[in-house]
Amino acid sequence: MSYNKSEGLGQDLNGRNNSAVISCSPLRSGLGTYSKLLYDLGFFESLVFFRKSSVSDESGYESVIKPKPGLYSARAMLSAFGISFWKKYIQKYGFAHLTSPEFFHLARFNKNLTGTVHDLQPIDDRVSRSAYSYAFKRYMKKNYSAMGRMKGVVAISNVTAQKIGEKIPDVDPVVIHQWTDNRFIFRDRKTVRDQLGIDEKTRIILNVSSTEPRKNLEFLPRIIDKLPEDFTLLRIGQKSPLLERIESHRFVNIESVADAIYPLYFNAADVYLSPSLREGFGRPTIEAVNSSLPVVVSNIPINREILRDQKFLADPDDPGDYVSRVQQMADMDEKERKTLYSSLGNYYREERARKEYADFYEKLGGVT
Score class of each variant (00 low, 15 high):
S2H: 13
S6D: 12
N18I: 11
A20Y: 00
I22R: 06
S23L: 02
S25K: 15
G42P: 07
F43E: 00
E45G: 04
S46T: 14
S46G: 11
F49H: 07
R51Q: 10
S53T: 09
V55F: 14
V55W: 15
E58A: 10
Y72P: 10
S73F: 10
A76D: 11
S79W: 03
A80C: 07
I90D: 02
Y93G: 10
G94S: 11
F103C: 10
F104H: 07
A107N: 09
N110Q: 05
L120V: 11
D125M: 15
V127M: 02
V127I: 15
R129F: 07
R129P: 14
S133F: 08
A135I: 09
S145C: 05
V154L: 07
I156Q: 04
I156G: 02
N158L: 12
Q162K: 15
Q162C: 15
I168G: 12
V171M: 07
V174K: 06
I176Y: 12
H177E: 10
W179A: 03
T180L: 13
D181M: 12
I185R: 06
R189S: 14
D194C: 11
I198Q: 14
D199R: 04
L206Y: 03
S209H: 05
T211I: 06
E212N: 15
K215F: 06
F219T: 11
F219S: 14
I224N: 14
L233V: 05
I236Q: 09
K239E: 10
P241Q: 07
L243F: 06
E244V: 12
S256A: 15
S256I: 12
V257Q: 09
L264I: 07
A268T: 13
L273H: 11
E279V: 03
T285D: 04
A288C: 04
V289T: 00
K311S: 05
F312N: 00
D315L: 14
M329E: 04
A330F: 04
M332R: 11
K335E: 10
E336I: 05
R337Q: 01
T339N: 06
L340C: 14
R349L: 09
E351M: 08
Y357C: 01
F360D: 03
G365I: 05
G366R: 00
G366K: 01
